[in-house]
Design a binder for these strands. Sequence first.
DNA 1: TAAGGCACTTAGCAATTACCCT
DNA 2: AGGGTAATTGCTAAGTGCCTTA
Length: 765
Amino acid sequence: MSGDHRNPDYQVNSGSKTNDSHKHKDKHKDKEHRHKDHKKDKEREKTKHSNSEHREGRDSEKKLRDKEKEKQKHSNGSSDKHREKQKEKRRDEKVKPIHIDKPKRENENGYAREKSPPPIKSEPEDNGFDPSPKQKPTKRERDDEEFDCKPKKVKKEDEKKAKKRRQDYDDEEEEEDIKPKKKTKVKKGMEGKKPKKEEEEKWKWWEEERATDGSKWRFLEHKGPVFALPYEPLPLHVRFFCDGKQIKLSPPAEEVATFFAKMLDHEYTTKDIFRKNFFKDWRKEMTPEEKSKITDLNKCNFNEMSEHFKAQSEARKQMSKDEKLKIKEENERILQEYGFCLMDNHKERIGNFRIEPPGLFRGRGDHPKMGMLKRRIRPEDIIINCSKDSKHPKPPAGTRWKELRHDNKVTWLVSWTENIQGSIKYIMLNPSSRIKGEKDWQKYETARRLKKCVERLRTQYRDDWKSKEMRIRQRAVALYFIDKLALRAGNEKEEGETADTVGCCSLRVEHINLYPKMDDQEYVVEFDFLGKDSIRYYNKIPVEKRAFKNLQLFLENKQPEDDLFDRLNTSILNKHLQELMDGLTAKVFRTYNASITLQQQLKALTSPDDNLPGKILSYNRANRAVAVLCNHQRAPPKTFEKSMQNLQTKIDDKQKQLATSRKQLKTSKADHKASHDEKSKKAVETKRKTVQRIEEQLMNLQMQATDREENKQIALGTSKLNYLDPRISVAWCKKWEISIEKVYNKTQREKFAWAIDMAEDDFEF
DNA sequence: TAAGGCACTTAGCAATTACCCT
DNA sequence: AGGGTAATTGCTAAGTGCCTTA
């Protein structure tokens, strides 16, 4: 199907951790072997693309180039090197309206919601969601599907269910924000059991209607957040020295000092910026006297504090079982009290109900603010969001909330403003909750809609490579990258506030190199930049000729620190995408390409003859292909080499064992040949079985080793959790009769309960 | 139309827990 | 039992994208 041929390209990317970043390019080479399998396809694609090149367009290209040059001269005569200035340059091109009649969303405020996942297509296969064998669509079709819409096959709602649902709604909508009814509302008809009042067994929210008015809930009640433990001053014997002299710190200064002391072993504390930021903030907490005595961080001695905390954590490990149990019980109690809320008649798990404790900010990568003090959050900083008529959470005695509001257009329960970036933090529900699940489902449905029109979009952006307008060419090439390489959109960031990282639209000239010829390949682009979380993206990849030519054009007369796409930003790109498909944004491509890759790879790699471990290996490899595509890396586990060795030892042992037992089999065969009696025959059989068993065990171990080795620097979790339509995995499990536990752990099963319940073995993304 | 605010998703690593072996 | 490793969970930073405001 569409896009298949592109898949192999995804394998090419490899990368390594930032920190040692640019020095270690070679490192990437040894990963290359992983991609061997796909060489052939790559070849195929190459030919395909070069065939499709035309020569026309050359001249127009040159003209464009000149024109753009002109423009540049005029607009900012000097060779301003800085990207800031580039921003000013966009505009003056002709506005050429794009003619795609774009159906207006019926609800302008964007809150429009449907029952079931958002724009649920009325595709037949979309609907296999019912636990019952027959499909019963819970969805209503959207009336605004453009292109990609096939004749809609609207199924009638299961009468009973529909009625019931409607009733539920009516009940509640009348009096809005009604008190939660004591009776739990659970699938009444189904199972015919009365709901257990406590754990209303597994609510299937995905079988219910969704609000259409933009409200996220009708009733919300919770107990508020759990605050960080108050600071406990150090015992007297733990001393602090500055310049060799002991100083008894005031509690506020001491608290901040302990933050530093706790991190002493970390590399962070050796970094200049970290130390500078820390010291500056620390001094703010000092008394005047302390301030005058402590003027140089280098003269501060935190060792006793550090030792104290190490001893403390040691002691914690040594605690008796009883003590540990007690702590566990206490935690459980807090979880029960604060870890759940009541939302629209259902008890739902809260994601993070604890307020972040104070400490030193640790950014990722080269963060200008590392080491700054993250201040303690007090009730006075907290905004509570809940139903007007719910039992409001009480602030701790003697305090008050900053604000109590009742906004059901948002999903958060608690928020506060953090002091490092000034951004807002939230307490929200767990991924297993209805409110998160619906959104997740909707995300995959959007990606599936993209699948239906992606070829059209690809044709279009290839076409746009020939546009007379620079901004259109840039947009088209950027989109090509986003599609082909699954790059992130790349919003602008405020300089100096965060680490210098980029995504597609914010790529700079210095982040790519062009090679018209490289070894046996043509039009190779080399990417090397830091992406989200300062993870390095490094990739050398051949691109289509016309894209390459455009890139050359974009680079002309630019300095390394200039924007590659100086006439583009994410908002322009997304506006364009929105016109091409309802709900389309740059990030949908990542979801789409990730999911489609998983599906294809599963199809390609799973062999019916493989045993269970073999199939799991295939699954992990398919998952891995996606992780590589999305550049989801991890630091190799500290104990990696060792654990590999251990496994190898096991394998060696197993091999010896196998050799022995093969020998035994041989002897027993010989015995049998000699005696021909029943007993020896049986012995042969047993031996044969043993050999077989050991062989299998050996194979499994080897498979495990391969899997682990291949996974050394690759993180599978992120894609599994955020990019892969869970229904693909569920379907795969059903198809090969593999239990879902092999693929999803408990948390994952909870998050994807909707998919596990609704996907059948024939689900197609 | 740029800048900033806000809400929500995505991300890697640290801490904790589960599990296995001796 | 306990010690070490692997798997899971928790934490919170860092993105995306939409909306509002100046």
